[in-house]
Amino acid sequence: MIEFKNVNYIHVNGIQALKEINLSIKPKTINALVGSNGTGKTTLARHINGLLKPTSGNVLVFGKNTKKISVASLSKRIGMVFQNSNHQLFADTVKNEILFGLNNFETDSQIKKNRFEWALNFFDLKKYENTSPLKLSGGEKKRLCIASVLAWNPEVLILDEPTVGQDQVQKEKMLKFISNLNKQGKTIIIISHDLEFLWPLKPNTIVMAKGRIKKTGKMTDIFSDDELLNQTCLMRPQLLDLWMKLNIKEEPPGDITEATDAIRRINGS
């Protein structure tokens, strides 16, 4: 679905941000791009919707080379939500904000209406329909940004640091949204430093360091590798850490409820 073939990218300021990237992202999966600051995670993600074109190598999206397609036509199938919500919001009302992308991509007015209603309801924004986006809280703004992208129903959703500035309640809501979207068949790519947030999603994890992909695989395998964690300055998620310290052989739990159940079961109580 998305393939990086020997991709190198050099910024206009001469810094090489991506080095020999080979990567394949399968449809209907949740993927996490992790790594310390400045390792090229966002740069890699921007290659997927064609905002950046590789200096050498090729990025193939749905079998097409991104060098030969415009950002607009790629964006129709690949939605990207940026880290800073304020960089995206400009319309006078929540309604117009959601309609912006829809108006650019969708011509059928009935589909437009249906998608608009779906986005408002799915992201719990109905009561703010005629409110200025600037009056929303940080969490609501983030939801609006995602809603305004998902409104035109892209097949792939890229989320750049979706949990920045979000409280625990908003994070849990976000987790449910992502999980539901994946169940609906969307491919999700999340760029995040928040490993505790990613852990319950059990994503296919891509670890980056100094512009290179260090390792890809299941989150449990990646975060069991002490040497890799040391090299990439990543911290092991707490539940996995607990499982490893207790030396429990079972599959690590996704959340605290699963963990409690598993420990009770092991103890026979």
Binding site: L51, A72, S75, F82, H87, F100, N104, V149, W152
Partner: peptide
């Protein structure tokens, strides 16, 4: 840099 980020964000929403 802000302007460049905003341009990227809006291009991703179909702005040409």
């Amino acid at each position: 840099l802000d302007a460049l980020q905003i341009i990227d964000a809006q291009k991703s929403r179909g702005l040409e």
